[in-house]
Design a protein around this nucleic acid. Structure first.
Lengths: 112, 112
DNA sequence: CTTATATACCTAGAACATCTAGGGAGAGGG
DNA sequence: CCCTCTCCCTAGATGTTCTAGGTATATAAG
């Protein structure tokens, strides 16, 4: 039986994180939880992928971070999407849709 | 302006190649051409990605190869999908659909 | 004959994102 | 006191794709 969780294809994580942050600032752990919930548990976000991704994205100026306290009274680094990040999100969403369309066209061809 | 060609996410190429071969044996170059055409030119398959992918897939037993002559009278290595390859194709197609669904769920959330 | 173009294959190494497999520390419940 | 969940972090492995070359042949154009 195949894995119940979808594998994350390389290149989708940034898009998902950016989307998560459009709803307001979130800490890393919260981003992971939110992505799993909003995908109805289809996605699993590994922390070893998540945190490096957040650093990369902050370096690129797509998000910025600030330390704060979580709802459960713990130290947490909150990330917010920047204007640049919103532009990036739009581009990645467009690219994603294009890829989905392309793969869909290929898979629809008859004759298998 | 964004690139007119969709980037290939890592992990999609095997699926596409397997699908291409369900229509009958094809040589590598032909697989690339067919994928570009059937995706209405949304996809571009780099030869530096294609040939290594074909070798990997042959090693794994998903496809097998045989030298022959192309329609344009050139030496060409024809690949055919195996039974194992068809199983793999089904799994990858399922995984792909699951990922598309998951990302779609995430992107649909309101509030951006 | 010479050149250009399209076909068809190949490869080394770089680049890059994700995963594995750990680690730490504090809050709160039992 | 211990356990679990939260929250952060990292080094290194893994694996795929891309870059940027290369070779060779068929055929058409000049």
């Amino acid at each position: 039986m195949p894995d119940p969780k979808a594998f994350l294809l390389k290149g989708t994580l940034d898009l998902l994180i950016l989307k998560a942050l459009t709803l307001g600032p979130r800490h890393g752990y919260g981003v992971a939880r939110w992505l799993e919930e909003s995908s109805r548990d289809l996605l699993r976000i590994e922390e070893g992928s998540l945190y490096p991704a957040l650093y990369r994205m902050e370096d690129k100026g797509w998000i910025r971070s600030e330390w704060g306290m979580s709802e459960t009274n713990r130290k947490a680094k909150y990330y917010a999407i920047t204007t640049q990040g919103r532009t990036q999100l739009e581009q990645e969403a467009t690219g994603w849709e294009r890829l989905v369309e392309a793969v869909s066209l290929v898979l629809q061809v008859q004759g298998g």
